Amino acid sequence: MQKFIQKFLPMAVAAMLFSVSAHAEMTGKHEVVTTYINAYNQKDIEQMSSLMHPDIEWIDIAGSTQTVSVSGKQAMLQGLAAYFATDLESVSVLQGAAVNGPYVSGVEKVLWVDTDNQERQQSATVVYELEDGLIRRVWYFPAVK
């Protein structure tokens, strides 16, 4: 029994440490995306900027077509500043988040009140790619109302 323990205990400890490490890495990636979305909800461009890779891309998916809507951090920040300057108040929430390697995916639900004072909502599948702890790419699938 002692030989069994001596042989397999190091592997069990290594597996446990790997599992803890992998969980921490997955949690960290999810936290980056959650922090980014929370900053969006607060219209905190500075916080959002700190989480963007310099070469960030926003990619819209429609059927079999991908369109790079925004390329580069400065272009993204300019677009956000223009959007935040409108009177539209919206809140975004990431639901059902999953982490797979450098990707965080889920369904992003957006809620807002339109100009007729009507509550609206839509959701879309979204995939965030992280590189060096920063958001490098965002793939946004068609919204469902």
Rank of each mutant, 00 (worst) to 15 (best):
Y128T: 07
L130I: 10
M52A: 06
S50M: 01
A81F: 02
V70K: 04
G106H: 11
I56L: 09
S49P: 01
T67R: 12
T34P: 03
N100D: 15
T35W: 02
Q121C: 05
G106N: 08
Q118V: 11
A98S: 15
H30C: 07
E108R: 11
E31D: 15
F84N: 12
L134D: 14
R136W: 10
V93R: 10
A82C: 01
P102K: 08
Q47G: 00
L94M: 04
V91N: 00
H53I: 07
K3R: 14
E25K: 06
V127H: 08
A12C: 09
V68H: 05
A24H: 15
A75K: 07
V110P: 09
P54Q: 11
W139E: 05
T67Y: 06
S71E: 10
T125P: 03
G101M: 03
P10H: 01
H30L: 14
A124W: 13
T67G: 01
Y36K: 06
H30M: 14
R120N: 13
M48S: 03
L9E: 00
S21W: 10
H30Y: 14
D116L: 05
H30S: 13
F84H: 11
S92H: 09
V104C: 00
G133M: 06
M1T: 08
P142E: 13
T34Q: 15
V126L: 03
V138M: 09
F141D: 09
Y103F: 13
S105R: 08
Q121S: 14
Q78N: 06
I56A: 08
N117Y: 08
K43E: 11
H53T: 03
V68M: 08
M1V: 09
V68R: 11
I56E: 04
A85Q: 15
S69L: 09
V126N: 03
F18I: 09
E57V: 03
L80K: 08
A14Q: 02
E119M: 13
A124T: 10
L77M: 10
V33Q: 02
S123V: 04
A85R: 12
G28H: 08
T86E: 08
N100E: 15
T67D: 04
T125S: 09
N41W: 06
V68W: 05
V33N: 01
N100C: 13
G96F: 01
D132C: 00
I59A: 07
F84C: 05
Y83A: 11
V144K: 15
K29E: 02
E108D: 12
S19M: 00
Q42N: 06
H30V: 11
L77N: 04
M52T: 07
Y40S: 11
F8V: 03
E129Y: 01
S69C: 01
Y83S: 07
A39P: 08
F8Y: 12
Y128C: 02
V93I: 07
Q66W: 00
K7V: 05
K109H: 15
A81V: 00
A62F: 03
S64I: 02
F4A: 11
Q2T: 10
Y140I: 12
Y103R: 10
G72A: 06
T27N: 10
K29V: 01
I45C: 00
A82F: 06
D87H: 14
